[in-house]
Design a protein around this nucleic acid. Structure first.
Length: 424
DNA sequence: TCTGGGGTCCTAGGACCC
DNA sequence: TCTGGGGTCCTAGGACCC
C-alpha cells in the first residue's frame, strides 16, 4: 500500500500559518512577477477565483471580497515544506518527496494497523507541528493513492482521509473519477480518450490495452495497469541527479537595451552556477533565451534561444557568466521589447566522477580554474552566512529588470531580520 | 498597463557504426 | 535498377507533472 500525503492549498496555508487572523478568510498567492493566481484558500475558491487567472483580470473581485493577496515567497514555502517532509519521514519507514507539497509513503508494513486511524494520526501530527493541513489517500498503487487523495480532499465527510482497499471501494472510486483527473492524463490525452468514449477511470480500466499502448504509449499503458491495481511505479527513495537546471524570470517592466538584458542574463547565469554547486554537478552546455511578451498583439513577438558547449564541464560562475554573455550577444536583436529571459545549464555530470572529458585545446583550461574553484567556495560560504548575493560578480545586477513583488510576506522561518519586528 | 517557473520522459527520425 | 540485419547516439517536438 502507498500513501499520498498532500498539503492543502499549500502556499496559501504557509502564508496563513503566520497570519492566524486570516484563518477562514479568502487568501490567494500570486506567481512570480505578481502575474497569475497560483494558490487559493478554500474561501477564495468558493468566490469562483480560478487557478492560473491573471491577477489583473480578477482585481475587482479580489478587492470586493477583501481577499488577502500575497506575492510568492519560495524561501518560506521551501522551508515549510522541509518541515512537513521531515515529520512525514518519521511517520513511515520510507518516504518519497514527490513535490514541494506532496510525498508518497510506503505503507506496506502497516498490515496490523487500522489505516484510517493511522492516516488521521498523520494529519493531526503535521497540523500540530507545522500548522499545515494535509489530506491522506492510501491505496495499492501510486496512481490509485492519488485518486484516493483527491477523494479525501473533495469530500468533507471523509475528514481528509480516504483508504481504497477492497475491489468495491476501488471500483466505486474509479467510476467517480473523470479521465482528466487521473494522474498522468493531461489535456491532450483526455481529448483523445473522450473521443473514444472513455470518460471515467473505470472506462479506462476496461479499454483495449493495445489501443492504449498504441495511442498513449508506454506511459499510458502503465497508468492503465496501475488503475487495475498492478503497481508499476516504485518508490523513489533518493532523488535522481538533475539533468538540467534553469533560472528564468519575467521582467517587472519592458526591457529593450542590451545592457539591461546583460545584467539580467548574468544574474540568472550566476544563480544557475550556485544551483550547480549545490547539486555538486558540472555543466557542459549552456542555453540562453530572451523573449518578447507572448501577448504582444503588434506582431513584434520574438523568441531568441541558442545553446553552446562550454569549453569543458564546469560549475565556475566566471566561465558560465562569460559564456552566457557571448550567447546573448548572438541572439539579441535591437528594437525589440523583451519581457523575459532565462539561462539553462545542461549536460550535467557529477563533480565527483572526475572522469570529465578533457578539452581538446588544453590552453583553454588555465591553472586558474583550480583557484577559481576555491574562490567559488568562499563566495558561497560568505553568501550562506551573510545572505544571498552579499558578494557577487560585478556583472550581476538586481535592479531594472526585477520582477514585481508588491505583497511579499516576511521570511519568518529563515531570516532573523524578518523575525525581529522593529517598531519605529 | 497588467498573463509563472522549473522540471521529466517518450517517440520518431536522422546520422552514424559494423 | 536492384541493396541486410543489428545496433547506438543525438535532437526536436510533444506530452506530462507540480
Amino acid at each position: 500500500m502507498f500513501a499520498l500525503v498532500d498539503c492543502n492549498n499549500f502556499y496559501a496555508s504557509c502564508e496563513r500559518t503566520f497570519r492566524p487572523e486570516l484563518r477562514l478568510r479568502p487568501v490567494v498567492v500570486l506567481s512570480n512577477n505578481d502575474g497569475c493566481i497560483i494558490a487559493r484558500s478554500e474561501e477564495a475558491k468558493a468566490l469562483g477565483i480560478k487557478m492560473g487567472t491573471p491577477e489583473f483580470k480578477c482585481r475587482d473581485l479580489l478587492k470586493k471580497h477583501n481577499v488577502s493577496v500575497f506575492s510568492s515567497n519560495y524561501s518560506l514555502y521551501g522551508d515549510m515544506s522541509s518541515r512537513v517532509m521531515r515529520l512525514l519521514g518519521k511517520l513511515a519507514p520510507e518516504i518519497e518527496v514527490y513535490s514541494i507539497d506532496e510525498a508518497f509513503l510506503d505503507m506496506s508494513s502497516f498490515t496490523r494497523f487500522d489505516l484510517t486511524d493511522y492516516a488521521r494520526h498523520m494529519r493531526k501530527t503535521v497540523r500540530q507541528h507545522t500548522g499545515i493541513p494535509v489530506c491522506v489517500g492510501i491505496a495499492p498503487t501510486k496512481t490509485l493513492a492519488k485518486i484516493a487523495n483527491r477523494i479525501a480532499k473533495k469530500n468533507q465527510e471523509n475528514q481528509g482521509v480516504c483508504i481504497l482497499k477492497s475491489h468495491e471501494e476501488i471500483y466505486s472510486a474509479l467510476e467517480r473519477t473523470k479521465v482528466e483527473d487521473i494522474w498522468g492524463i493531461g489535456r491532450q490525452w483526455s481529448k483523445q480518450l473522450q473521443a473514444k468514449r472513455i470518460e471515467t477511470a473505470a472506462d479506462l480500466v476496461v479499454a483495449s490495452p493495445a489501443w492504449v499502448r498504441k495511442n498513449l504509449h508506454i506511459v499510458g499503458a502503465r497508468i492503465q495497469s496501475e488503475l487495475q491495481g498492478t503497481s508499476c511505479l516504485e518508490m523513489e527513495l533518493v532523488r535522481p541527479a538533475k539533468q538540467s537546471i534553469c533560472t528564468s524570470r519575467s521582467f517587472g517592466r519592458s526591457v529593450s537595451s542590451l545592457a539591461e538584458l546583460q545584467q539580467a542574463v548574468a544574474t540568472f547565469a550566476g544563480k544557475c552556477a550556485v544551483k550547480l554547486r549545490q547539486e555538486n554537478a558540472l555543466a557542459s552546455m549552456l542555453t540562453v533565451f530572451i523573449a518578447a511578451s507572448p501577448f504582444d498583439e503588434s506582431g513584434n513577438r520574438y523568441w531568441g534561444t541558442r545553446t553552446a558547449a562550454l569549453p569543458y564541464p564546469t560549475q565556475n560562475s566566471i566561465i558560465i557568466l562569460r559564456a552566457a554573455e557571448t550567447i546573448l550577444a548572438g541572439i539579441f536583436q535591437d528594437g525589440m521589447v523583451y519581457k523575459k529571459a532565462g539561462v539553462i545549464v545542461s549536460g550535467l555530470v557529477p563533480r565527483a566522477s572526475c572522469s570529465t572529458t578533457l578539452s581538446l585545446f588544453p590552453e583553454e583550461e588555465p591553472v586558474a580554474n583550480e583557484r577559481d574553484a576555491s574562490l567559488m567556495q568562499v563566495m558561497d560560504a560568505i553568501n550562506q552566512r551573510y545572505g544571498r548575493s552579499a558578494v557577487h560578480l560585478a556583472s550581476e545586477n538586481n535592479n531594472s529588470w526585477k520582477p514585481n513583488q508588491a505583497n511579499l510576506s516576511p521570511n519568518r522561518t529563515t531570516s532573523w531580520n524578518d523575525i525581529i519586528e522593529v517598531k519605529v
